[in-house]
Design a protein around this nucleic acid. Structure first.
Lengths: 223, 223
DNA sequence: TAGATTGTTAATCGATTAACAATC
DNA sequence: TAGATTGTTAATCGATTAACAATC
């Protein structure tokens, strides 16, 4: 129980374990071993056991982990069974694409609204959600106690918009703009620079020897 | 020169350095120190110097790094000045959003085509590119010597589509589907599971003490 | 020059992996 | 039972950080 502090690598692996275990459970497989999970992700089986142990889940020696139980445990631990209200700020290509992504809903993330500065988008309905104008932002965030925002505005506007979000009470921002955002203590920014990620990937590919030894990279750390 | 093998963490930081340095150069700042770069990303200045040293770039003691020169160096090192042909397979929300993202073009990534199974999308033009049907896939990849594909198909189809991509000669896949893809040796798959990343973020946020000590997380490793 | 910043070697830190007893 | 798999402690590995001489 009482996980003191999970490392970020562990935190990143847990959702991947969930995908695998959920899939096994759905396919009717009763038990799954740490080796099976580890093989899928190309990590060490010990790593898997250690991570699961860290969040307080016990397996059965000789048998493995009950797929269904573990899936439910991870689901609960990761909070996929609880609803969280989230807003998307910036209803451009990416913002709209994310708002249409069904994965959010199935993982308990309720995207309650989209915001944009462009008046021509006012009232446009995307996936059942009306695009709101930026001048409604503060009131909406306060009245609905929103704490998490996905930021998909242009880089130039990211800092300015973030300042408003923090002032309105937002505690965490998932930032897709390729800029560093300064933020008050007590708030968090998790940068997700798609281009930077892709560039690192390309470079990795080009630096790799022509004949990779198949499945040899820790896919994981590359998330 | 001759960087033997850059670590993945280093590889992920380089594009972020580029963003910062390019921005400084564009703003007319002649020189930038490792500390300035490090501060923006909340990493250690030594880290920055070590990374830059690893790719063979030298700074000037007492002065720092020439913003313009470093920006150009990183641009060249990361290959942003060379054109690479890429295809997007899966013209759904995300695939279309990515194809519209101008960042690819400005970083030398030329998205030459989109593919989808949905016949009703046949011929639809997105950002000047015609959506092609899957039966053209193999021929297109071969004839245009495409080596990199962005995979934005539903999870269920990911493995099957990947098999076709590898068979056609694709060497690297940037996979957005939340499933592990088995691939032949010599090919690489870089998973980019948006939901898993977001889930780790949310969990991190909820586990953090209410009063974070502002800007205290290594934003970096969280990319 | 003196002070500031680089480049690099050495020390630290933490994550991954190995080893192995416990167990169903 | 014997064999397989877990859980955990110890060892390894590699990335980050500290220390400091070199330098403009």
């Amino acid at each position: 129980m009482s996980h003191r502090k999970l490392s970020i690598p562990t935190l990143r692996r847990l959702p991947l374990y969930y995908n695998i275990v959920r899939h096994a459970a759905d396919a009717g497989q009763s038990f799954i071993s740490s080796s099976e999970i580890a093989y899928c992700l190309n990590v060490d089986p010990t790593q898997v056991r250690k991570d699961l142990s860290a969040i307080g889940h016990r397996g059965k020696p000789k048998i493995g982990f009950s797929s269904f139980e573990l899936a439910e445990y991870l689901k609960s631990f990761l909070g996929f069974d609880r609803i969280r209200r989230i807003i998307i700020v910036g209803a451009g290509n990416l913002g709209v694409a994310l708002s249409r992504y069904s994965g959010f809903t199935t993982h308990g993330m309720d995207i309650t609204a989209l915001f944009d500065v462009n008046p021509s988008l006012a009232g446009t309905v995307v996936e059942g959600r009306k695009i709101r104008m930026m001048d409604e932002l503060e009131r909406y965030v306060c009245e609905n106690s929103i704490e998490i925002a996905i930021l998909t505005v242009p880089a130039m506007a990211a800092q300015q918009v973030s300042d408003r979000l923090f002032a309105a009470g937002i505690k965490a921002v998932w930032n897709f703009a390729p800029v560093n955002i300064t933020h008050p203590s007590g708030a968090l920014v998790w940068n997700h620079d798609l281009m930077a990620s892709f560039a690192a990937f390309i470079k990795f590919v080009e630096d790799s020897p022509e004949s990779g030894e198949g499945h040899g990279i820790p896919l994981l750390s590359l998330l």
